[in-house]
Write a protein that binds this DNA or RNA. Structure first.
Lengths: 234, 234
DNA sequence: GTTGAAACCTGAGCTCAATCAGTTAATTTT
DNA sequence: AAAATTAACTGATTGAGCTCAGGTTTCAAC
């Protein structure tokens, strides 16, 4: 059997990226409609874009920056995904009979977000099937990713989860084996469903074992294949 | 403040139901196309409908029965959702650049499943925006539900998770406070991300505390409001 | 430069829940 | 009806990972 038909199993990444442009699928008139019914807002690092449970009024298009999408209840927090440049956020709020946001969003870095009127976006989905097909694609890709993380967080132990998140950050966000982390250890905890202390301990362990190098916010993955094995065997 | 504007927080249910008919949104010609390119298959209790990682060739429409949708890797298993009559399954496999199923499906009871050609389904999504808008609705509703379970399984301890699943089964599947469970204790474990033994212990505890009555497969919820409080506080 | 706050790190103790190693009950097969 | 298989249950033990209670570093503000 060649590699092509090999089953890859479950992906465990938490970052989502949009490669194609949804905007290009709209007709010129539809694009004008979007332009006329949206505004671009600058957010500072650490600001809240929207809150779970609030009425959904806009779709958010992240033109620039890095944000987290998360659930919060009482003092418990779970980061669903990180989103970078060119992500659409808030689409999950589109289902009839519902008008509440199913998650909160806040920024890690200074970000530029275009806020698009929800009713207009809905209307375009209803009238342009090329566009809505593309959105279905995006939703399904996102869903597959969430499933992977769901599996990771419920079935693996700490080693595997930390390996998952490190590989994901390296591959999807920074596209480099060394990077400056804009997230705190507490955020890594919310991403991996573990306590801040456990994140620190686990990363120190990885450092002692020569898997990564680390000085506070700057991280370098040294032995990626071993990290992948840790990720795989949980 | 009236109850209407109260934020309800995160929902934690694992069952998904389709109220509306997607079929009715198709034109007569499109319906014919579906009819000509689908077959209805009978599955026996316990049979596997499709496997994670296999090539996706069909969309599954559950005409009759009860199935589980789950992830499996090595000997670890996680049930993503239970689906009843009139559910569409396999839509998540629709995204370009992917042709693998992101989950496995198997039956709990004898089931009748209409298998619809994936390319035809895709074509209809691309040409009928009413239809694709409806599918977006379904996907988003499902996503909101998965988020709720994700939170439940990663943030709550055993008591809360068992309360969640019991309330969900009662409300969404059996629509009654007493029911005959078609799932084994091991399945409840896969649904709640806990070991079979822990499921048994927790349910016995609930029984001893007068929250539920239980004889093997038959279960009755006695104190629903207390179960809801347990669900809420984890 | 000093102060304060926030983030990072460390060790000890404890708790929750998995594992293991059984027994009992229910179901299916012969 | 007996045997075999599967599912339900129980108790004891173990350990992973959380909590708590500190200490240290970093960084921004004054």
């Amino acid at each position: 059997m060649s590699q092509i038909t090999e089953t890859k199993g479950i992906s465990h990444c938490s970052v989502f990226e949009f490669e194609q442009s949804w905007y290009a699928l709209l007709t010129p008139e539809e694009q004008l409609l979007i332009d006329a019914n949206s505004v671009s807002i600058n957010f500072r690092k650490g600001e809240t874009v929207c809150k779970l449970g609030a009425f959904a009024s806009h779709i958010y298009f992240l033109e620039e920056g890095l944000v987290k999408v998360y659930l919060e209840e009482r003092n418990k927090k779970l980061i669903l995904s990180l989103s970078t440049k060119n992500s659409l956020l808030g689409i999950a709020a589109i289902f009839d009979g519902n008008n509440k946001l199913p998650y909160s969003v806040s920024t890690y870095t200074d970000s530029k977000i275009r806020m698009i009127d929800l009713q207009i976006f809905r209307q375009l989905l209803k009238q342009n099937s090329e566009f809505s097909y593309h959105i279905i694609n995006l939703l399904n890709e996102k869903t597959a990713q969430i499933y992977g993380r769901f599996f990771s967080l419920t079935q693996k132990q700490l080693h595997g989860r930390v390996a998952d998140i490190l590989l994901c950050l390296s591959n999807k966000i920074f596209k480099s084996s060394s990077f400056e982390l804009p997230l705190s250890r507490a955020d890594l905890g919310d991403l991996t469903g573990m306590s801040t202390e456990s994140v620190i301990r686990m990363m120190k362990e990885f450092k002692d074992d020569g898997l990564i190098d680390m000085h506070c916010k700057s991280i370098e993955l040294l032995d990626i294949s071993r990290l992948e094995r840790i990720s795989e065997f949980g």
